[in-house]
Simulated scan of single mutants.
Amino acid sequence: MQKKRSGTSVDADAPARLIAAQPFAAGLGDDALERLIDTAAHRRVAEGQFLFHQQAAATRFFVVIEGKLKLYRISAAGSEKIIGRVGAGDSFAEGIAFMECPRYPVHAQAIEDSRVIGLSRKVYREQLIASPETCLAVMGKLTGRISRLLDEIECLTLRGGRDRVIRFLLGLVPNDGAARNDATITLPARKNTIAAQLSIRPETLSRILAGLNRDGLIQRTADPHRLYIPEPAVLRREFDESTGGQRF
């Protein structure tokens, strides 16, 4: 979409381009996209601050400009279960467009200072009704998320803590990691947040990482947020042998 407003700088146009590039915008014509972009509300969310709470009335879905947020629920026992994390360029909560009485299914909390764009659920729903292509694109994205969550549930219920940690680390290896002899990964959150996502205690996570380091499968670096994996294929083989070759 080339349309620009008078006096708009390149930087000011960046959020509009970010929105236009999202899967949820697939199939939208220029006019429909412009109408959606016109509903954009920018918001800063400081580390630890909530963007929204579970079961709150949902009027907007979001795109992250910068920073990271965690999406989680609280169990009946009071423990935190992280459903996912989102960072710069990610969108989330689009599913509210399909709800008749929309409420957010999770809490959204910043794990570092963040900026997000909120878009109108009402306006977007009108576009979904008018554009089958857009509706199918969003449904495809949501189906992918559901599939990943089912894989995670299976891993959490059938595998031990070590397997969960290895699977998590493998998910951080760059796409070309399998073709290389080594890889350096960056942990996307603090260890207590990662532990909550894997349904283990932070001290258990630390013990498992120490064990993987001792076994030579990973190596700590000077940066506590980064880990070196000398041979990703060996780490993958460790996981496959433990799970009988079944990839979660």
Rank of each mutant, 00 (worst) to 15 (best):
Y104K: 04
R145E: 15
I117L: 12
A97H: 04
E154G: 13
G89F: 06
S79K: 10
F239M: 13
L169A: 07
F50G: 05
E203D: 15
L142A: 10
S242K: 06
C155D: 14
Q55V: 07
L156H: 10
A57I: 12
G7N: 11
R73T: 15
P188M: 04
P15Q: 06
R247Y: 07
G27R: 06
A195N: 02
G160Y: 00
R180C: 06
D215V: 01
P202N: 07
H107F: 10
E154C: 14
R236A: 14
K141F: 15
C155H: 09
R167C: 08
D13H: 09
R164A: 11
L172N: 01
M1P: 00
R5W: 07
A179R: 12
G89W: 03
I96L: 09
T184W: 02
F248V: 06
A189I: 11
L18D: 12
G89Y: 06
A77R: 12
Y124N: 00
V138Q: 11
G67C: 11
A137K: 09
V138I: 15
Y72F: 15
E152S: 13
L150G: 09
N192I: 11
L156S: 12
T8L: 08
H107M: 04
G216A: 05
D90C: 10
E47Y: 01
G78C: 08
A76N: 09
G171E: 03
E238T: 13
A16F: 10
A222M: 05
P230C: 03
G161K: 03
R35C: 06
V173Y: 03
S242P: 05
A233I: 11
G161W: 04
V63E: 08
L227N: 01
A57R: 12
R207K: 10
D13E: 15
L150T: 14
T184S: 14
V173P: 00
L205Q: 03
G78W: 02
I146S: 11
G160D: 13
L217M: 04
I37D: 01
I200F: 07
A77V: 13
A130Q: 14
R190M: 09
R207N: 08
V165M: 05
S75I: 02
K191R: 13
P105F: 08
I117Q: 00
H53I: 09
R237H: 12
S120P: 07
G216T: 03
T204G: 10
A20Q: 08
P105R: 02
P174R: 00
R43K: 12
R121A: 08
R148G: 13
V165N: 04
R125Q: 07
I153G: 03
K4D: 01
G48T: 10
A76E: 13
V234G: 05
R85Q: 15
L69Q: 07
F248M: 04
L172W: 02
A137I: 11
E94H: 06
S199E: 15
V45N: 00
A40P: 03
A41T: 14
G67Y: 08
E241H: 09
I153V: 11
E94N: 10
T134L: 09
L205S: 06
P188V: 04
R60I: 10
L217Y: 04
F92T: 02
L187G: 03
